[in-house]
Amino acid sequence: MTDTLFHAHPVRGPMNAAFFWAAGGMFDRLLRSHKRRVYADLPDTVVELGAGVGANLRYLSPGSTLIAVEPNPAMHGRLRRAARRSGVHLDLRPVSAERTHLPDASVDVVLSSLVLCSVGDPGQVLREVRRVLRPGGRFVFVEHVAAPAGTPLRRLQRWVRRPWAWCFEGCSCERDLASVVGDAGFDRVDVESYRLRSPFLPFNTQIAGVATR
């Protein structure tokens, strides 16, 4: 299966895989309370968009199945090893979140964590999520978003836009993802906004929530 929407970069891809592998514990400590809330009661089979190196495997039960949508081949080796250690069956799909090739109404939960910031078209990703979810299915997410307009943090996000995007596979710190999820046609959307305290300042404004089909 060939993904025409993602083009692997020979430097950025391996750099991101190594970075998120090394920093995974720190990011989990920052986000753990929010992830525990929205990732509660996950079923035996979960689709994850941008599964990366397996940061969210710790929230799945041993013996469950992760359908991992991850187009960056540099992530795949670490993701496979992490899944084996966690006792989670891995169904790896090297495709983009905009076009997963999964059947209509085929899954109960789609999960994303710090992914919608870097996809080419978050609206299309959410249309794809709604397509693959069964009626009553959930999209559970933890994402970083734009700071309020006119604030020093928003100005910082704008100043670092280009180098940040280059380093993190096109990641944007200036997306209003709460509105994107709210406008995606889900029957119900529950979103919490919060702010982290971390050295990664442009990343510190966050949302976590559940959107129900």
Score class of each variant (00 low, 15 high):
Tyr194Asp: 07
Ala83Met: 07
Phe168Arg: 05
Phe141Arg: 01
Val189Lys: 06
Gly25Met: 01
Ala147Ile: 05
Asp28Gln: 06
Val107Phe: 08
Asp190Ala: 13
Cys117Asp: 04
Ser96Trp: 02
Thr151Leu: 08
Met15Tyr: 15
Arg99Ser: 13
Arg36Asn: 15
Pro163Ala: 12
Leu177Ala: 01
Trp166Gln: 08
Arg127Thr: 06
Gly52Phe: 03
Glu192Asp: 15
Thr2Cys: 11
Arg99Lys: 15
Thr100Arg: 02
Gly209Ile: 00
Val180His: 02
Leu92Ala: 07
Thr65Ser: 11
Val109Leu: 08
Thr65Gly: 08
Ala8Leu: 06
Leu114Tyr: 07
Gly120Val: 02
Asp108Phe: 09
Leu60Gly: 05
Leu42Thr: 07
Ile207Val: 04
His7Arg: 14
Val142Ser: 07
Trp164Asp: 11
His7Met: 10
Glu192Arg: 10
Val115His: 00
Ser112Asp: 04
Leu196Val: 04
Leu49Ala: 05
Asp44Thr: 15
Phe203His: 11
Gly209Ser: 03
Val88Ile: 13
Gly120Cys: 06
Ala40Tyr: 13
Thr212Gln: 07
Pro73Met: 11
Arg131Lys: 11
Leu66Met: 13
Gln157Trp: 09
Pro14Lys: 04
Pro71Asn: 04
Arg213Met: 13
Arg93Val: 09
Val109Asn: 05
Phe19Ser: 09
Ala83Gln: 05
Ser33Cys: 11
Ser118Tyr: 03
Asp183His: 04
Leu66Thr: 01
Val11Gln: 13
Val119His: 05
Phe141Pro: 00
Arg37Pro: 05
Arg32Glu: 11
Pro10Gln: 06
Gln124Ile: 02
Arg36Glu: 15
Arg127Asn: 09
Gly137Ala: 12
Pro202Ile: 03
Arg134Ser: 14
Leu42Phe: 09
Val181Asp: 00
Pro122Ala: 05
Thr2Ser: 14
Ala55Gln: 14
Val107Glu: 10
Leu57Pro: 02
Thr4Val: 11
Val132Leu: 09
Ala17Leu: 03
Ser113Phe: 06
Trp164Lys: 05
Cys167Asp: 12
His144Phe: 06
Ala211Ser: 07
His34Glu: 14
Asp183Cys: 03
Arg155Gly: 13
Thr151Asn: 06
Trp159Phe: 15
Leu90Gly: 04
Arg99Ala: 14
Glu143Lys: 00
Thr100His: 05
Phe6Leu: 07
Phe186Cys: 03
Leu201Gln: 12
Gly137Gln: 10
Glu174Tyr: 04
Ser118Phe: 01
Thr45Ala: 14
Leu92Trp: 08
Ser118His: 03
Val88Phe: 07
Gly123Lys: 07
Gly24Pro: 00
Arg130Lys: 12
Leu126Gln: 00
Asn204Cys: 11
Phe6Trp: 10
Thr65Pro: 01
Gln206Asn: 14
Phe141Thr: 02
Leu177Gly: 02
Val160Met: 10
Pro14Thr: 03
Arg134Leu: 15
Leu5Val: 04
Ala23His: 09
Asp3Cys: 10
Glu128Arg: 03
Leu156Asn: 05
Gly136Phe: 09
Arg162Leu: 15
Phe27Pro: 00
Ala74Gln: 02
Arg29Leu: 12
Thr2Met: 15
Arg12Leu: 13
Gly52Cys: 09
His144Asn: 04
Ala97Lys: 02
Arg213Phe: 08
Arg175Asp: 02
Gly52Gln: 04
